[in-house]
Amino acid sequence: MKSSDWELMPAFLAVARAGSLRAGAELLHTNYGTVNRNIQALEASYGVALFVRSTKGFKLTEAGEAVLPFAEQAEQVIINARKRVEGLDKTEAGTLRFSVTPTFAYDVITPIISRFQEAYPDIQVALRLTSAVENINKDETDVSLRAAYDVSGDVVARKLYPMAMGIYASKAYIHTTFAKAGPQGAGLSWIGWPENGPFSNWISQSAFPQADVRHSVSDGYMRLRMLREGCGISPLPVVFEKFFPDLCRVPGTPLEFGQTLWIVLHADLRKTVRIRRFVDFLADALMDLRPDMQGELYRR
């Protein structure tokens, strides 16, 4: 392998995984033209086409399939080396990457970051707001806050506690629309998800199976905004009662425990001082929020 191949290989892996130049460029946070040039240069270096181009995207050729496992192994070796060296860092300084969902980032996490920077002014937090589960072992992030029933894989996961969930609406929506609602929620509107299969099953078992799914949105914070604007009803973590007094749980509906909060990091970063300081600080701050995260279910 030529030395230049190392520089071009990320483009190959990104397009192989994403299936197109543009999607691959998004994975690498670069532009379409750069990825295209790198793919062409790599193919010229090998003297063989690595992808079949079509209107449906990029598909690996036989040669591309042969290269893929070696490229993935090389990528993992580089990532492991980086993590191992970072794990030797003993200073309370530097940058760490932290991924969290937009739903929690703005109101739950921002005050924690503010207090953290006061306590550790030489540690910078590079926030990535995403609802996707980022791959710790693929070096997409250093620390991640996840809501999940379980966490698997070769990662270190600090389990905190399950969050309480309820059915919420704006106080104005409850005052005006619920008075006119029919049996089992007829006349009410759910704010759902684009993939409504599991959500539809959940609706059928809720107190409002006759309410229609009028709107759908994948972004949790947008769903929260729509609730506050009186667009309907939707499940929501109870903690948002603390931040938005214009929202309230639909009368007569219970709180239930949902997914558990986890702080996840790469195993090799456990001894990196800045990572450990941030993880401990984040965990303590979230534990302080536990009564608000669990509402009336706290200590049950």
Rank of each mutant, 00 (worst) to 15 (best):
P121A: 05
I136P: 03
D139F: 06
F116C: 05
T141W: 02
T141Q: 04
A119W: 12
F116I: 04
D139R: 14
R115W: 01
I136D: 01
I123N: 01
N135W: 03
E118L: 14
T141Y: 01
D122L: 05
L129N: 09
S131R: 13
A126V: 11
L127N: 10
T130H: 00
I123R: 03
N135T: 07
D122E: 15
E134K: 06
P121G: 04
A126P: 01
D139Q: 07
I136E: 03
D122S: 10
A132S: 11
V143A: 09
D122R: 08
R115A: 13
V143C: 07
D139W: 05
A126F: 12
E140P: 05
L127S: 12
N137C: 08
F116E: 05
N137Q: 14
T141S: 07
S144N: 12
R115H: 06
A126E: 15
P121C: 06
D122M: 04
Q124I: 07
Q124D: 12
V125E: 01
N137L: 11
S144W: 03
D142N: 12
K138F: 04
K138H: 08
Q117G: 02
Q124G: 03
L127M: 15
V143E: 05
V133F: 02
T141G: 01
E118Y: 04
K138M: 06
E134N: 05
P121S: 08
R128S: 11
Q124P: 00
D139N: 15
D142P: 09
K138E: 13
R128K: 13
D139T: 00
K138T: 01
S144E: 15
D122F: 00
Y120I: 00
E140K: 10
Q124R: 11
L129Q: 14
E134L: 15
N135M: 06
Q124Y: 08
N137P: 00
S144R: 10
N135D: 14
N135H: 09
I136M: 11
Q117M: 10
V133T: 02
A126D: 14
R115Q: 10
Q124H: 13
I136N: 02
L129P: 02
S144K: 10
E118K: 15
Q124C: 06
N137A: 11
K138Y: 04
E140R: 14
A132C: 02
P121R: 06
T130I: 03
L127H: 11
E118N: 09
T130V: 07
L129T: 11
Y120G: 01
A119M: 14
T141A: 08
E140A: 10
E140L: 10
